[in-house]
Every structure is written in C-alpha cells, then in structure tokens.
Simulated assay, not measured.
Amino acid sequence: MPKIRDFLPSDAKQVDSLALRSFEQFKGSYQDWPGFRAKIGNMSCLVDVGEIIVAELECRIVGAVVYVGPNASKAEFFRPEWSIMRMLVVDPNFRARGIGRTLAQEAIRRAKRDGASVFALHTSIVMEVALPMYLRMGFVWVSDAPAIHGVDYGIYVKELDG
C-alpha cells in the first residue's frame, strides 16, 4: 500500500503532472480540452483552498486528492457546512491497487476529524471507474452540478457517523 501523507511545496510539479496524466483519457469528452487541461494542470494551487493529500509509492507520487473542510470556501453548489473532496487523481500505471479508495477514505477521516456530518464530491458518468467506487463507498446522488466544458456532473454525498 502507498504511504499517505500531506502535500509538500516540493511536490507541486509531480502533483500537477499526475493530474494531467490522470485526466488525459477524458480529453475527448471535454469541449474545451485545452482550457480544462490548463486548470487541472495547476492542481497544486488548490493547496490555497484545502489540504492536498498524496499517495506515495516507490518514491513517487501516484495519487492525490484535495480535502476541503466544513465552512471553508467552496463552489456554491456545495453546502457550506459540508466537507468535500476535489480532484481525486491516480496515476494510470498504478490503478486498480486501491489507491483512489485509500485517498478518499483519508479525506473522509479528515472530515470526521473536523466534525462534518456530510461529505460531498462532484463527478461525472464519464468517470467510469471513480463513480462506481464512490457508489460502493456509500455516496448517493443528490443533484446535478453545473457542466464543466460540456461534461455533465452530479453532486454525491455520504452521511458521516461521528
């Protein structure tokens, strides 16, 4: 299993590159791939809005996610008191090893640490591996979210036990 740890400033280049590799398979789905690519290629900048958690294996970062706590600034389609996660990414060469689930579970652990009763995310049906994983983890669809460059997204939540 990978080592799960907090992001360090020296991780920025690896995390940004990882985000691009992770989303590359979806480039045909987004109407403005160059515009979307520019956003995801700066994943490390999300350290300003939340906690970036990384998964390290064989001395390299193979996964990352951004955790944003309750009452922190987030998109208006999320309720302010919810904890959320953004940009769960796993290196395509390291998929099917439980890294995404481990990162999601760490973000949920932090939400519980922060006293959140609901944990949320937004994702799309084009995410053919991630969405079923979230559903198996107990997330349920609650509403549509705004489309991103032509790709429909939904908001999914998980009720947290103390």
Rank of each mutant, 00 (worst) to 15 (best):
K3F: 07
K3Q: 15
I4T: 04
F7T: 11
L8W: 05
L8D: 12
P9W: 02
P9H: 02
P9M: 05
S10M: 08
D11A: 06
D11T: 08
A12P: 02
K13D: 14
K13Q: 15
Q14W: 02
Q14M: 12
S17N: 14
S17A: 15
L18E: 12
L18A: 10
L20C: 09
L20N: 04
R21P: 01
R21M: 13
S22N: 08
F26R: 08
G28M: 10
S29K: 10
S29Q: 12
Q31W: 03
D32R: 10
D32E: 05
W33K: 07
G35H: 03
F36Y: 12
R37S: 13
R37K: 14
A38C: 07
K39Y: 08
K39D: 09
I40Y: 01
I40C: 10
N42Y: 01
M43C: 08
S44E: 09
S44M: 11
V47K: 15
D48N: 14
I52H: 03
V54G: 02
A55I: 09
A55V: 07
E56P: 05
E56A: 09
E58G: 09
C59Q: 14
R60T: 12
R60P: 00
R60N: 10
A64D: 07
V65T: 10
V65K: 03
V68W: 02
V68F: 00
G69E: 03
P70K: 09
N71M: 09
A72P: 00
A72L: 10
S73T: 10
K74P: 01
K74D: 03
K74I: 01
E76M: 10
F77T: 05
F78P: 03
R79H: 02
P80E: 11
E81I: 01
W82V: 00
W82A: 02
I84A: 04
I84L: 00
R86P: 00
R86C: 07
M87V: 10
V89F: 03
V89Q: 09
V89G: 04
P92Y: 05
N93Q: 15
F94D: 11
F94Q: 13
R95Q: 14
A96M: 14
R97S: 02
G98I: 05
G98T: 06
I99Q: 07
L103E: 03
A104K: 04
R109Q: 14
R110I: 09
A111S: 11
A111F: 00
K112T: 11
D114I: 06
D114A: 15
G115Y: 04
G115N: 06
S117Y: 09
V118Y: 00
V118E: 05
L121A: 10
H122W: 01
H122Q: 13
I125F: 13
V126N: 07
V126Y: 05
V126F: 04
M127Y: 05
E128R: 11
A130D: 07
A130K: 08
L131Y: 04
L131W: 01
L131D: 11
L131R: 13
M133D: 04
L135W: 01
R136G: 11
R136M: 12
M137A: 07
M137S: 07
M137Q: 08
G138F: 00
F139V: 05
V140H: 11
V140C: 08
W141Q: 12
V142H: 03
A145M: 07
A145G: 07
A145T: 09
A147K: 11
A147R: 11
I148F: 03
I148D: 12
H149S: 15
H149C: 13
G150L: 08
Y153W: 08
G154S: 08
K158I: 04
E159H: 12
L160I: 02
L160D: 07
G162D: 14
G162H: 12
